[in-house]
């Protein structure tokens, strides 16, 4: 049943990447429990705009959990308390009247704050550019059914391919490592026969780029898997490590 709650928000405000940020307190009143977390911020922002104040900047787009654009650390957890849920799909029914809610941006050396909750995740694009694809030009591909892929293999590749590139894994990791993100793409392409010809070069290039971009190392904390909104498994990290060792021994 629909009801309304009142919350106290403590939100990270930072004008831009060159100045220091600080926590600010806002009251969120009359919040319907059917709202999404982002709709709750919309309501707070509408109030700020009408007062002529600067609304809270945050990234968001599809609002249905697939584009990977949204994300903030809510009460210490990336995308908030619900498992397997992006911030846009987190609904206010998971909060209680009177709760204090702390909202911060992703924290990582590789993700610089642009403004408030908005961070620069272009390091992820750089890693994909280093090799997260199969090198085929448009045209000239053989008939799709000429490459049979066993169903269980296709399913595993799809499990990895579900990654939305939101960066929650990095935000969750004590070392701010991007291993889950990188391994999801490495796994998807290493599992499929189409991706095998470049598998060795790909894993080396992507891991090396990940290090260059300032992400930390994996310490097997498994925080990434616990917070991933798409439930990407650390099995992919193990698979990437195997691929990396195989490639290094070649």
């Amino acid at each position: 049943m629909t009801k309304t709650i009142n919350l106290t928000l403590k939100v990270w405000r930072q004008k831009n990447g060159n100045v220091k940020g600080r926590m600010e307190t806002y009251e969120a009143r009359g919040i319907s429990t059917d709202m999404s977390f982002l709709e709750m911020i919309d309501v707070v922002n509408e109030g700020l705009i009408l007062k002529g104040e600067d609304p809270i900047a945050f990234d968001h787009d599809c609002r249905e959990g697939i584009c990977g654009m949204c994300g903030a650390v809510v009460n210490g957890r990336p995308h908030g308390p619900e498992k397997g849920t992006t911030l846009c799909q987190l609904h206010m029914r998971h909060f209680d009247d009177g709760d204090e809610v702390v909202v911060e941006p992703w924290r990582s050396r590789a993700f610089k704050v642009i403004k408030d909750l908005v961070v620069d995740r272009s390091a992820f694009d750089s890693i994909i550019q280093a090799g997260g694809y199969i090198s085929v030009n448009t045209g000239g591909a053989q008939d799709a059914n000429a490459i049979p892929v066993p169903q269980n293999v296709a399913e595993k590749a799809m499990d990895a391919a579900e990654c939305i590139g939101c960066g929650a894994c990095v935000a969750a990791c004590p070392n701010a490592s991007a291993m889950l993100f990188v391994s999801a793409k490495v796994s998807q392409l290493a599992l499929l026969p189409q991706g095998r010809p470049e598998a060795a070069g790909r894993v080396k290039a992507m891991v090396s780029k990940m290090d260059d971009m300032g992400f930390g190392h994996c310490g097997n904390e498994r925080e990434c898997e616990a917070e991933c909104p798409k439930n990407i498994s650390i099995v992919n990290i193990a698979r990437m490590n195997r691929e990396f060792i195989k490639a290094s021994l070649k």
């Binding site: 694809y133 199969i134 085929v136 448009t138 045209g139 591909a141 053989q142 008939d143 799709a144 059914n145 490459i147 049979p148 892929v149 066993p150 169903q151 296709a154 590749a157 799809m158 391919a161 998807q188 392409l189 499929l192 189409q194 991706g195």
Partner: peptide
């Protein structure tokens, strides 16, 4: 038809039958 061929070559993990075909 060319689109499907192209996407499979890129590694798009389309659903498969048990025999491995699309």
């Amino acid at each position: 038809n060319n689109i499907i061929d192209q996407c499979v070559a890129q590694g798009v993990p389309f659903a498969r039958e048990y025999g491995g075909l699309l």
